[in-house]
Structures are given as C-alpha cells and as structure tokens.
Write a protein that binds this DNA or RNA. Sequence first.
DNA 1: TGACATTAGTTGCACATGTAACTAATTGGA
DNA 2: TCCAATTAGTTACATGTGCAACTAATGTCA
Lengths: 162, 162
Amino acid sequence: MSTTQKPEDRALHLEQFLPYRLNVVGFFASRALGRVYGTRFGIGIPEWRVIAQLGEFGQLTSRDIGELSQMHKTKVSRAVAELDKRGLVTRAENRADRREAFVALSAAGQRLYAQIVPLALAFEERWIEGISADELRVFERVLALLTERGRHLAGAYQTEEA
Amino acid sequence: MSTTQKPEDRALHLEQFLPYRLNVVGFFASRALGRVYGTRFGIGIPEWRVIAQLGEFGQLTSRDIGELSQMHKTKVSRAVAELDKRGLVTRAENRADRREAFVALSAAGQRLYAQIVPLALAFEERWIEGISADELRVFERVLALLTERGRHLAGAYQTEEA
DNA sequence: TGACATTAGTTGCACATGTAACTAATTGGA
DNA sequence: TCCAATTAGTTACATGTGCAACTAATGTCA
C-alpha cells in the first residue's frame, strides 16, 4: 500500500470545515445585528436590508431590492409590506409598467435610516477592530471569491440571474 | 465646519458591509452543502452536523453535540430523533447519569459517514481551489477572530457557555 | 390582432426553528 | 434527609421562510 493519500482520504474535522465555519460566522453576524435592530427599532434582518438598499439607492422596485440584497422575492414582498404597514416606506405604481411599484423610504423611514446607519457602522468597526489593513484586504478579497463561487455552487434562486 | 468625518458619518454600502457579506456567504455555503447531502442522502444540515461530530468523536451526548456544532438543543434533539428513526444512530442511556444518553453512529450511519466525508472534502477543495496557501492562512486567521468576536456580540444561546 | 410566454408581486401551504414550558434525574446545601 | 436549584432532553406554540401556484400586466411573434 502507498502512504500517499488522495485528498479525499483526509479526515474531516467539522470545526475546521470551511462551509461550516462560514455558516457559523454568518449566523453570529445575523444574530448580533438582529439584536441591535430588533431591540432598538423593532425590525428584523429582511426589513433592515430593504431599508439599507432604499437608503442607498433612493427608489427601487421589489425586484431590484431582492437582487441587490440577495433575498427571495417572497421575503422582499413580506418585508416591504411590513415596512409599508409601519409607514416607513411608500409604494408608487410605475405607470409605465403597472406590474411593478417603486418603493422608497418615507420621511419616517429616512429618519430611521439616519439612526441605524451609525449604529451599523459602529458595530462593524468594533467587530474588525485591531485587524490590520493588510489582513483585512486579503480577507475581503478571498471572501469575495468564495462568495462568487458559493453563489454558483448553491444554485440560484428563481429570481436571481439564471 | 470641519471636513474631517467621524467614522460614524461614513455612508453605508450594504454590499460592502461585512456582517451582510458574511451572512450571504454562509447562506450559500449552507445551501450548497444542503443540496449535496439532501439530494444524495436525504438529510439536512442539522443531521449532517450530528453525523459529522459522531464520526469524528465516536460517542457524544446531545449536549456535547450541540456545543461542538453550535446548534440549539432543540435542533440537536430533533436531528438525533430523525437519525434514530432512520437507524443511522444508536442511543444508550448513561447509567451513571440517567438524564443523558450517549449517541453514536450505527453501522449504517458509519457507512453513510464514510460516503459523505469524501464528498464534503471534495466540495471544500473545489470551493477554495486556486487560492494561495498564504492567502488562505490569513483568511482563516481573520475568520477565527471574527467568529470569536461574533459569538460574543451575538450573545450566546441558553445552552452555550455563559 | 390574437394567442402564448414571460415577468412583478402576492399568497397558500408545508416545513424548519427558537422560545418557553415541561419532565425526569441529579446536585448541593441546610 | 429533605428541599431548592440545576441539568439533559423533549415538546407545544408561534413565527419565519421557501416553493409552488396564482393574478395581473407586459412582451413576443405570427
């Protein structure tokens, strides 16, 4: 017998297994942020993502929001409906294509956005504190690559690009 | 007015926002793996984590499994029950402490584990292919740091360490 | 023009999951 | 010894979410 091992014969250690590790850190991120938004503003992650995109881009259709923030269209639909119910967004039918509607932050929504953004940035700041710029650059580059490959390995949602 | 900006006055770009990015990549990881296990073996992520830990450590209580694999005790309970129903694990009461039970892979479970491990490792391999060892080292170190901080920022489950 | 395909968005349904409450067993003092 | 506190594990309940099916509007092509 050979002592050489095919990569596939290596042992598996879950705590070193990259997909597992990424899932865990993503879970922590989501949970920590959800705690910030939830306790102070009473909104969840999907609602936060909608607000963030509208705050950045001003006016979007639900379809756009879903594509930009990687959310299933039903999740977007429900988040927008919830924000509408709370008066944080407005919906205006596109008269050139009456299937879709332009969603935008209301005045109250803009005030909320202005409150959340500093908290979000401070949260991020505290999280990456002490990590060198060089290391962060490498980390973010690898992360972008893994995300792009992951998107394909995962197989897209119906609504995402084919 | 000063032109200097406090960090908190920076604009927010969701697609650059680290918690968001980590959550997205973690979602892709989970979904891609779930596809592999689900289509070929009919098991989900929680079941896979239980199997992985038992394959690695041989015999564990549900409590241990939850701690090692970062899962809520109810998720572990249900996953173990499901695997038990399929005959993939065995449960043996600990006679020294009859509250808990030792869970282990059955013969069928061990065969399944032996089948899954190469697939999981190949999946990981394909995912990180082409990334230099140096970059990966940096990436994993930063990832470990972010995970540890995220664990605290997220606040622990009831069952995790206080 | 008309028929079929496509798209934006919503909703019914089934399922997964966290919280809280629970049972049963054990531990730790007074 | 006895009672309160703790722990392992399960379950009822409410909620979140994806898929499939749906409606309404638009695009396409003959």
